[in-house]
Computed example of a mutant assay.
Amino acid sequence: MSMTLADFISDRDRRKSLAEAVDASPDYLWQVATGWNGRKPSPKLALRISKATHGLVTVQSMRPDVFGPAANDS
């Protein structure tokens, strides 16, 4: 089962914990999760997020332009 980054970080404590794990600010994670001002996670950040979430948030769901569409999108 996978989930979007926005769903994963909807809980503030979880957002803070993930931010610490991937060396980003909680606010920046929210910006990339919601696409605020066109923001997307870099490919490296997407990989760190996927690893830190144990694959619950996939790189494909965050950056289909780099990693291809998610399996359930095809």
Results as ranks from 00 to 15, higher is better:
W36G: 01
S50N: 14
I49A: 02
G35M: 10
V32G: 00
K44I: 12
Q60M: 02
S50L: 11
P43L: 07
N37S: 13
N37D: 13
I49C: 03
V57Q: 00
D27A: 09
H54S: 14
L45N: 07
D27Y: 02
T58D: 01
T34D: 09
Q60D: 07
V32M: 00
Y28M: 03
V59K: 01
G38S: 05
A46S: 12
A46M: 03
L29M: 07
D27Q: 11
S42G: 14
K40I: 12
Q31D: 09
W30H: 04
L56K: 15
K44Y: 08
D27S: 14
W36C: 04
P41K: 05
V57A: 00
Y28H: 14
T53A: 10
A33M: 08
K44N: 15
T53K: 08
V57T: 13
L47E: 14
Q60A: 14
R48C: 03
W30P: 00
V32P: 01
R39Q: 11
W36R: 15
L29E: 05
G55F: 02
T53P: 07
R39I: 02
W30K: 09
P43M: 10
G55R: 05
T58A: 02
R48V: 01
K51Q: 15
L47C: 03
V32Q: 01
Q60N: 13
T58H: 01
S50D: 11
S42V: 06
K40F: 07
P43V: 06
W30M: 05
A46W: 02
D27M: 05
K51A: 15
K51R: 14
K44Q: 15
W36H: 12
T34S: 15
N37H: 14
G55P: 03
L47G: 04
T58N: 03
L56M: 15
R48E: 14
S61T: 09
K40Y: 07
G38C: 08
W36Q: 10
T34F: 08
S42M: 10
A33Y: 06
T53W: 14
A52E: 10
S61F: 03
A46G: 10
V59T: 12
L56P: 04
V59I: 14
V57R: 00
W30G: 01
P43A: 08
G38Q: 10
R48M: 06
V32I: 15
P41V: 04
T53N: 13
L45C: 05
L45V: 07
L47D: 13
T58Q: 01
G35W: 13
T58R: 01
I49W: 05
S61V: 06
A52S: 13
G35Q: 11
L56Q: 15
I49L: 04
S42R: 08
G38I: 09
R48S: 09
I49R: 01
V59P: 01
T53R: 06
R39D: 06
K51L: 11
A52F: 11
V32L: 00
G55L: 04
G35V: 12
T34C: 07
L56S: 09
H54Y: 13
A52W: 13
G55M: 05
A33G: 13
G35S: 11
R39L: 08
P43S: 12
V59W: 01
I49P: 00
